[in-house]
Deep mutational scan, measured.
Amino acid sequence: SSCPGKSSWPHLVGVGGSVAKAIIERQNPNVKAVILEEGTPVTKDFRCNRVRIWVNKRGLVVSPPRIG
């Protein structure tokens, strides 16, 4: 992607959502990480300053967080 800084975090799958949020925002200060339960409807727009963290009912990351 053409967004500045780190853009994906595949190693965070299985980690707690709040831990993942802290790591992502520390590694790329340009983004705001948002924790969402899988299945939550979201907009389809692409934004360089957003990372969606998809978690299951136990709050664990279920897919690699990435910019968008």
Results as ranks from 00 to 15, higher is better:
18 S>Q: 15
16 G>C: 15
26 R>D: 07
14 G>W: 03
14 G>M: 02
47 R>W: 12
67 I>E: 06
51 V>H: 02
10 P>F: 05
27 Q>M: 09
30 N>H: 15
42 V>I: 05
37 E>S: 08
41 P>T: 11
50 R>P: 04
63 S>L: 10
60 L>G: 05
28 N>G: 01
32 K>M: 10
27 Q>R: 05
1 S>W: 05
68 G>E: 10
38 E>P: 06
24 I>C: 03
36 L>E: 03
5 G>E: 15
48 C>W: 10
59 G>F: 01
47 R>C: 13
40 T>R: 06
18 S>A: 14
61 V>Q: 03
44 K>L: 07
48 C>S: 13
19 V>A: 11
46 F>R: 08
22 A>K: 13
6 K>I: 15
10 P>A: 10
8 S>H: 12
68 G>T: 08
2 S>D: 15
45 D>F: 03
63 S>C: 13
15 V>C: 10
24 I>V: 07
58 R>E: 10
58 R>Q: 13
46 F>V: 11
3 C>Q: 13
37 E>D: 08
1 S>A: 12
15 V>L: 14
2 S>T: 14
15 V>M: 15
28 N>D: 09
34 V>P: 06
42 V>T: 14
67 I>A: 12
49 N>G: 08
6 K>C: 15
47 R>F: 10
18 S>H: 15
39 G>C: 03
60 L>Y: 11
24 I>Y: 00
29 P>H: 07
22 A>W: 10
63 S>T: 12
21 K>M: 04
51 V>S: 02
64 P>I: 08
62 V>A: 07
43 T>S: 14
53 I>G: 02
65 P>H: 00
60 L>S: 08
40 T>A: 09
12 L>I: 00
16 G>W: 09
34 V>Y: 07
38 E>D: 07
4 P>M: 12
34 V>C: 08
42 V>Q: 05
52 R>V: 14
33 A>V: 12
20 A>L: 02
5 G>F: 13
41 P>W: 06
38 E>F: 04
53 I>H: 07
45 D>I: 06
62 V>Q: 08
3 C>T: 15
52 R>Q: 11
59 G>R: 05
23 I>Q: 04
48 C>R: 12
62 V>H: 03
31 V>Y: 13
66 R>C: 10
44 K>W: 05
57 K>D: 14
18 S>I: 08
23 I>G: 03
54 W>F: 09
58 R>T: 11
5 G>W: 12
58 R>A: 13
68 G>Y: 06
48 C>F: 11
22 A>T: 13
46 F>W: 13
39 G>S: 04
56 N>Y: 05
51 V>C: 07
44 K>P: 13
21 K>F: 02
53 I>Q: 01
56 N>C: 03
36 L>K: 03
56 N>S: 07
48 C>L: 09
66 R>L: 11
61 V>E: 00
4 P>A: 14
25 E>M: 04
43 T>V: 11
18 S>K: 08
59 G>K: 01
14 G>K: 02
26 R>C: 08
40 T>L: 06
6 K>M: 15
42 V>E: 08
9 W>F: 08
37 E>C: 11
30 N>S: 12
44 K>C: 07
4 P>L: 09
34 V>E: 14
18 S>M: 11
44 K>Y: 08
56 N>T: 02
60 L>M: 09
55 V>M: 01
48 C>E: 14
28 N>S: 07
65 P>E: 00
42 V>G: 04
66 R>V: 13
17 G>E: 00
39 G>L: 03
68 G>A: 08
63 S>W: 07
63 S>V: 11
39 G>Q: 06
58 R>N: 12
18 S>Y: 14
27 Q>S: 11
25 E>H: 03
29 P>Y: 00
15 V>W: 08
25 E>A: 02
52 R>L: 13
33 A>L: 01
33 A>F: 01
4 P>F: 10
33 A>E: 00
41 P>D: 11
21 K>A: 10
50 R>W: 12
14 G>N: 04
68 G>C: 09
32 K>T: 12
34 V>H: 08
44 K>F: 06
53 I>L: 05
1 S>M: 15
10 P>I: 05
13 V>K: 03
6 K>F: 14
14 G>F: 00
31 V>T: 05
45 D>T: 07
59 G>H: 06
15 V>F: 08
12 L>R: 01
46 F>M: 11
43 T>Q: 11
42 V>D: 10
26 R>L: 07
50 R>T: 15
6 K>Y: 14
9 W>N: 04
22 A>D: 11
31 V>P: 04
52 R>M: 12
4 P>W: 10
64 P>E: 09
7 S>R: 13
38 E>W: 08
33 A>I: 01
66 R>E: 13
6 K>T: 15
49 N>W: 03
58 R>H: 11
51 V>P: 02
58 R>M: 12
3 C>R: 12
4 P>V: 15
34 V>S: 10
23 I>L: 11
27 Q>G: 08
34 V>M: 12
47 R>M: 13
7 S>F: 11
28 N>T: 06
23 I>V: 12
11 H>S: 13
18 S>D: 13
42 V>A: 12
6 K>D: 14
18 S>R: 13
23 I>E: 09
8 S>K: 14
47 R>V: 11
60 L>R: 10
17 G>F: 02
19 V>F: 12
64 P>N: 03
27 Q>P: 02
47 R>T: 14
20 A>K: 01
20 A>E: 02
49 N>S: 10
4 P>H: 08
28 N>Y: 10
54 W>H: 07
1 S>Y: 10
9 W>I: 02
4 P>D: 14
55 V>F: 01
63 S>P: 01
16 G>P: 12
65 P>V: 00
13 V>S: 02
6 K>N: 15
29 P>S: 09
46 F>E: 14
7 S>T: 14
11 H>P: 05
32 K>D: 07
7 S>A: 14
10 P>C: 03
9 W>R: 02
